[in-house]
Simulated assay, not measured.
Amino acid sequence: MSINRTELVAQMAERSGLTKAQADSALGAFQSVIIDALSEGESVRVTGLLSVERVERAARTGRNPRTGEEIQIPAGFGVKLTAGSTLKAAVGK
């Protein structure tokens, strides 16, 4: 089971006393802050909840799964998410 954006916004609105439009706006702003920070090479830490950072990935050799042919995968960036202590404790229950 998973919660989609609409359900998340509805729960945020209910728990915060905001309207759904305000909760959706807040979620959109949170998303924008994370995207902007990561694109500038900064990390985002929400103490107890999570940490999000951009990580470099080195160029490497991979394989085409259909043909088995070796291919060169260029260097690039990825995103690393780390759960905070409060989130880890909640999941461990």
Rank of each mutant, 00 (worst) to 15 (best):
A59K: 14
T67S: 13
I34F: 11
I71P: 09
S51A: 14
N64L: 02
I73D: 05
A75Q: 04
E42Q: 15
V44P: 06
R54M: 01
A37L: 04
V52C: 13
S39R: 11
E69S: 11
R66G: 07
T47Q: 06
I35T: 13
T47G: 06
R54W: 02
R54V: 00
A75L: 02
D36Q: 15
S51N: 15
D36L: 08
L50G: 07
S51H: 15
I71A: 08
E70Y: 09
E56P: 10
V52W: 10
F77A: 10
E42G: 09
R45E: 12
A58S: 15
S43P: 01
I34R: 13
V52T: 09
R57Q: 10
G68D: 02
D36A: 12
A37C: 06
V44H: 05
I35L: 12
P65C: 13
G41S: 11
R60W: 09
E53I: 00
R66E: 03
R63L: 03
V44W: 07
I34W: 12
L50M: 12
G48P: 12
A59L: 12
E70A: 14
L49G: 13
L49R: 13
A59R: 13
P74N: 10
D36G: 11
L38R: 04
R57A: 00
P74I: 01
E56Y: 10
F77D: 08
E70C: 04
G68S: 04
R57E: 01
S43Y: 01
E56R: 14
L38V: 01
R63E: 01
P65H: 15
Q72F: 09
G41N: 07
L38W: 03
R45T: 01
R63K: 15
L38H: 04
L50Y: 11
R54Q: 05
R54G: 00
V46W: 05
V46S: 04
T47D: 04
A58P: 12
E70R: 13
G68E: 02
E70Q: 13
I35G: 06
V44G: 05
G48F: 01
A59Y: 10
R66K: 11
V52N: 12
E40G: 04
R57F: 06
P65D: 13
I35V: 12
D36K: 15
L50R: 05
I34L: 14
R57S: 01
L50V: 00
Q72I: 01
A37S: 13
L50S: 10
T61D: 04
R57K: 15
G41E: 06
L49D: 11
E69H: 08
T67Y: 07
A75M: 03
G76Y: 02
E53N: 07
G76T: 00
Q72H: 12
E53A: 04
N64D: 08
R60N: 04
G76D: 03
S43H: 02
S39W: 03
R57G: 00
T67H: 08
S43L: 00
E56I: 03
N64F: 00
E40A: 03
S43C: 01
R45D: 11
S39G: 08
S51F: 09
R45N: 14
I71T: 10
S39N: 13
E69F: 04
R66N: 07
A58K: 15
G41W: 02
A59C: 11
A58F: 10
V55N: 09
G68Y: 03
I35R: 14
E40K: 12
R54S: 02
G62W: 06
G62T: 08
S39V: 00
F77S: 12
A75R: 10
F77K: 14
A75P: 02
L38G: 05
